[in-house]
C-alpha cells in the first residue's frame, strides 16, 4: 500500500507526521518512508540513520556531436522547450530547460545528439533500525523536481516487496511535484492548520486530489489555535478528519531540535494512534 502525506500549504507538519508515524508504525509492520520533498528534504533530520546504499540520480540530456552534425537545425525546430539553439557553426544545449523527451535525439538525421546522463541529484537508502528510509535530494541549481521524484518511487518499487507499506512525504503545493508524489497512491493525507491560509490551501489540495481521483482525508495540525473554518469546510464537503493534533509550544520545541515527538508528548501520541488505526482499516 502507498500512502502520501501532502499539504497545500508549506510548514503545516507533513514531515513531523511522516517521521513520527513511520517510527511508531514500524514496531508493528514492515514499512519504508520516502522523502519526496526533493527540493527541501527534511525527514532525515529527525531520524537516527545509517547509509545503506547511495546512488546518483541522472536525467538524460542530449549531447551534441560536432563531427557528424550537418547543422541542418532540425533539432532546434523540434524542441518545444527552447533547450536547443543552433548558431552559425554550433548547436548549444541548455540542460536546465530540457524535459528529456528525446525528440531532438531520435529525430536527428545523423544521430548527432545522443542522450547522455547528467546528474540531477542523489537517492540515498538509509536503515533506521526498525524501518528503511529513502531520501531524494535535488542538486541546487536543478529546477525540475518531477524526474527525481519518479526515480525515487521506482527505486522503492524495485527494492521492496509489495507487502511493505510505503509512506511518501510529499512536497508542498498542488502542482506537478505533488501530483507525481500522489498520482498512484492508495490514500492521501492532507495536513493543514486551522487558519485562513490553511483553509485556502486545503481547498486547492482537495480539488487537486479530486482531479487525480484519489481517496483522501484531512489531518488538522496545531488544532486549537486559529478558527473553525477548516472543520466547517470538511463537514460541508463530507471530508473525513482523521486526527487533530493539538497546538502546543512543547511540540514546536521538540520539532525545533530535530526530535521525534510522540514518545514525549501524550496528546500527539493519541492522535498518531488514530492515524495508525485508520491506516489499519483501509489496509484491511
Amino acid at each position: 500500500m502507498r500512502i502520501t502525506i501532502a499539504s497545500g500549504k508549506g510548514g503545516t507538519g507533513k514531515t513531523t507526521i511522516s517521521t513520527n508515524l513511520s517510527h511508531y508504525l514500524s514496531r508493528k509492520r514492515q514499512l519504508v518512508l520516502v522523502d519526496l520533498d526533493v527540493e527541501e528534504p527534511n525527514s532525515g533530520l529527525f531520524l537516527d540513520k545509517e547509509i545503506f546504499y547511495e546512488q546518483v540520480a541522472n536525467k538524460m540530456i542530449p549531447e551534441w556531436q560536432s563531427k557528424s552534425c550537418i547543422l541542418c537545425g532540425e533539432c532546434a525546430k523540434v524542441c518545444n522547450f527552447n533547450a536547443i539553439l543552433k548558431i552559425e557553426k554550433e548547436v548549444l544545449v541548455f540542460p536546465e530547460l530540457c524535459h528529456s523527451c528525446y525528440a531532438c535525439s531520435e529525430l536527428c538525421f545523423t544521430n548527432s545528439l545522443p542522450m547522455k546522463p547528467k546528474q540531477m541529484g542523489e537517492i540515498t537508502h538509509y536503515k533506521c533500525g526498525t524501518f528503511d528510509f529513502i531520501e531524494g535530494r535535488l542538486r541546487v541549481g536543478e529546477e525540475q523536481a518531477v524526474p527525481l521524484i519518479s526515480q525515487c518511487i521506482e527505486y522503492v518499487d524495485e527494492s521492496f516487496e509489495k507487502s511493505f507499506l510505503r509512506l511518501y512525504d510529499a512536497p508542498p503545493g498542488t502542482s506537478c511535484p505533488v501530483i507525481e508524489a500522489s498520482k498512484k497512491s492508495d490514500f492521501v493525507f492532507l495536513v493543514t492548520e486551522p487558519t485562513p491560509f490553511g483553509l485556502n490551501d486545503l481547498r486547492l489540495a482537495v480539488e487537486t486530489m479530486k482531479v487525480l481521483k484519489r481517496d483522501f482525508g484531512v489531518i488538522i495540525n496545531r488544532y486549537g489555535i486559529g478558527d473553525r473554518g477548516v472543520e466547517e469546510y470538511c463537514e460541508k464537503e463530507g471530508i473525513g478528519i482523521i486526527a487533530k493534533i493539538p497546538n502546543d509550544k512543547a511540540i514546536a520545541k521538540l520539532y525545533s531540535n530535530g526530535e521525534l515527538v510522540y514518545e514525549k508528548h501524550e496528546g500527539f501520541r493519541r492522535e498518531l494512534e488514530k492515524i495508525s488505526s485508520f491506516i489499519g482499516e483501509i489496509d484491511a
Binding site: 533530520l45 541546487v140 541549481g141 530535530g258
Partner: peptide, 20 residues
C-alpha cells in the same frame, strides 16, 4: 527562516540558489 533544524537546513539550500 525559523529557529528549527529544518529551518536552518532549508535556509542554506535556498541561499545557495540566491548566491548563484
Amino acid at each position: 527562516t525559523e529557529a528549527t533544524t529544518s529551518g536552518l537546513h532549508d535556509l542554506k539550500r535556498v541561499h545557495q540558489v540566491v548566491k548563484t
